[in-house]
Design a protein around this nucleic acid. Structure first.
Length: 637
DNA sequence: ATAGGGTTAG
């Protein structure tokens, strides 16, 4: 039985009804499924709703759907579900499909709850099928989603366009890529979907996710119709691949740029360690009158964190408040701010933000723990971890890197070993190569070189450069085993050769950021900087400083090595810092994108002594506070 | 009722 109804009185409605009836007749005549259309709905013929009550039922349905829309936790959804059953809508595909989509969104496994919801409905429409297929597709395995799709076909339910988008969404590796291609072929065979803009946009993402960026680009190039989503997908793909030049080229060609496209560029630059470009794009975006939302701000905050400048930190914070995205009610903004203040050297302010936040997630806790660890506040970090595990927020791999780093800084070997041993058992976080690197660091720093070596042997994975680096540091400060150092250095040499060029920043007057590369003479005050640096080198030499040429990992002659070493970017930044600040004991803060070299480290120490200044160098790992010739890291980094 | 942007570590 096919039921058509028309609630309105308009001519269009009557016409639509007429079309429906003739489509229904065709369907009966051909016994084939009809192409997708949003204007019909498969309902449950057993639950016949009298015409007089139809509007009331529709109202109830949309009421329940809006209740669901406001749910953000499993418990809330379960409550609404109970309500749905009480109101007799336990067979309503519209409401239940919404419920399954929401469960997918908050990552509730499809088995058993959503699957059970699905099975309790006797007459399932394509949207209910699609909701479950989508869940399996997103959460994996894709095979499960495909077998559901086949079951749906066996029951002669005709797929809708987003059945295919749901299926394609799941392909994330090469194996699934082939499955994805088969699905795409199916969608073409069934007709009506091959020209679908949605399907094409998902295809772009599918190829990109599998690492086939060029294929994604090919789909894009061959599309007959493109929208801002197609463009943004590729912009993001290029930026994730580290090719900001290609991303920027796409962006400039994009005819109508919207908030999301702009944000993709801002975040792209931030993610690719190009904070100045990120801010430049953000300013352009604002001057073109594009609105700003929470996600845009997160990108901007991340850029400011990399600059490490107090001026930018306060600027972006005030701006976030001004837009109504303050940390109190916005977890993502709050977490990003915590990270930013820690990286700007202001861990107290980071904690103030943390305290203000009403809702805290794993990012908030991990960023705060990491912030404490970076600044050597080991007890604060560990106390916060204890506080965290009492809440419902589950620690993840990053959280454990934070607590292990904290232990390293305070030499808490037993505590660290204990955390490392229980992370999998108690918190289901599998130790990764980074966690092993932390442990090697911890053991090595405490002088337990044999244990460190045993742990490397026992690792279930290949040691990476972080692990070797930790061991290298340990060999350097203990036992004087230089032959070991050379051996380790050899094995990580390949990695050293393909690193980013080293850069340093310093915050000048009016919060202007000055950036230096090694040997960089492009700064307008280069002449003065060079003189100040030479003066400093002279004074240091008279105190016994001698350039440590082994810090230059290239095969060059001595004079060349010396020239490179003495114009390392942090030395230029330091010279500039001395030029622009009063000599009255003020602190000089330098930011670096890479780990500080050994020569620069001792150079900074000596400089702090003879100038009587505190020098803070933030490298890619932690803060070095140099005071009177001594560094807070204890010469271990 | 399907598609694009996000924070922590390395």
């Amino acid at each position: 039985m096919i039921l058509c109804y028309d609630l309105g009185k308009s001519v269009a409605g009557s016409l639509a009804l007429h079309v429906m009836v003739s489509l229904a007749r065709k369907l009966i005549a051909s016994r084939n499924p009809i192409p997708t259309s949003r204007s019909y709905e498969f309902g449950n013929p057993e639950v016949f709703v009298p015409f007089s009550r139809l509007q009331e039922t529709k109202l109830l349905e949309s009421h329940l759907v809006s209740l669901l829309d406001n749910c953000s936790s499993l418990n809330q959804i379960k409550q609404v579900h109970a309500h749905v059953i009480r109101r007799g809508l336990d067979q309503c595909c519209y409401v239940l499909a919404k419920l399954i989509r929401l469960l997918t969104k908050i990552n509730v496994p499809m088995d058993p709850y959503p699957r059970l919801v699905f099975h309790q409905v006797e007459y399932r429409n394509p949207f209910l099928w699609t909701a479950l297929i989508r869940g399996y597709s997103i959460q994996g395995p894709l095979k499960e989603a495909v077998s559901l799709y086949n079951a749906m076909r066996r029951e002669s339910i005709s797929p809708v366009s987003f059945t295919f988008t749901a299926l394609l969404k799941g392909s994330s590796d090469e194996l699934e890529l082939n499955l994805g291609r088969q699905i795409h072929c199916q969608s073409i065979k069934l007709g009506g979907f091959c020209e679908d803009l949605f399907v094409h946009n998902i295809l772009i993402d599918m190829y990109v996710k599998c690492g086939w960026l060029d294929y994604g680009r090919k789909v894009f190039d061959e599309m007959s119709e493109r929208d801002v989503i197609s463009w943004t997908s590729l912009i993001v793909a290029y930026s994730k691949a580290g090719d900001m030049a290609a991303a920027a080229e796409m962006f400039e060609r994009l005819p109508v740029k919207d908030l999301v496209a702009w944000t993709a560029m801002v975040s792209g630059f931030a993610q690719n360690a190009k904070p100045r470009e990120a801010l430049e794009f953000f300013h352009r975006m604002q001057s073109e009158g594009v609105e700003t939302d929470e996600l845009t701000l997160v990108g901007v905050i991340s850029a400011c964190a990399q600059l490490g400048a107090a001026k930018y930190a306060n600027w972006v914070r005030d701006m976030a408040e001004g837009y109504g995205f303050g940390p109190a009610n916005h977890v993502m903004v709050g977490s990003a701010l915590i990270d930013m203040y820690s990286k700007c050297g202001n861990v107290e302010e980071a904690y103030k933000v943390f305290e203000k936040m009403k809702e805290k997630n794993v990012f908030s806790y991990s960023s705060m723990i990491m912030g404490f660890a970076m600044h050597g506040c080991a007890n604060a970090a560990l106390d916060l971890f204890e506080e965290m595990v009492k809440t419902e927020v589950k620690p993840n791999k990053v959280t454990f890197i934070g607590v292990l780093m904290a232990c390293t800084h305070a030499g808490l070997v037993e505590r660290g070993r204990n955390l490392f041993d229980t992370m999998e058992k108690h918190y289901s976080v599998e130790p990764s190569v980074e966690h092993y690197a932390c442990m090697i660091d911890l053991l090595g720093r405490a002088g337990q070189l044999e244990e460190a070596r045993e742990l490397i042997k026992a690792m279930p994975m290949e040691p990476n450069s972080g692990v070797w680096g930790a061991l290298l540091g340990a060999c350097r400060i203990h036992a004087g085993r230089w032959e070991d150092v050379l051996g380790v250095r050899k094995s990580i040499k390949q990695k050293l050769l393909r690193k980013d060029p080293s850069r340093s920043w310093i915050e000048g007057k009016e919060g202007v950021i000055h950036e230096f590369y090694a040997g960089d003479m492009t700064h307008p005050n280069s002449k003065e900087i060079k003189e100040a640096l030479e003066d400093l080198i002279g004074r240091l030499k008279s105190h016994g400083y001698e350039p440590n040429l082994s810090s230059v990992p290239y095969d060059l002659n001595e004079e060349h090595k010396r020239r490179i070493l003495l114009t390392h970017s942090e030395k230029l930044a330091l010279a500039y810092g001395l030029l622009i600040t009063d000599s009255a004991g003020s602190t000089i803060k330098i930011m670096k994108n890479l780990r500080i070299c050994e020569d620069c480290h001792s150079f900074m120490g000596g400089a702090s002594q003879i100038t009587g200044r505190e020098i803070i160098v933030r490298d890619n790992k932690r803060f070095h506070h140099f005071r009177n010739g001594v560094c807070s890291c204890g010469n271990f980094w």
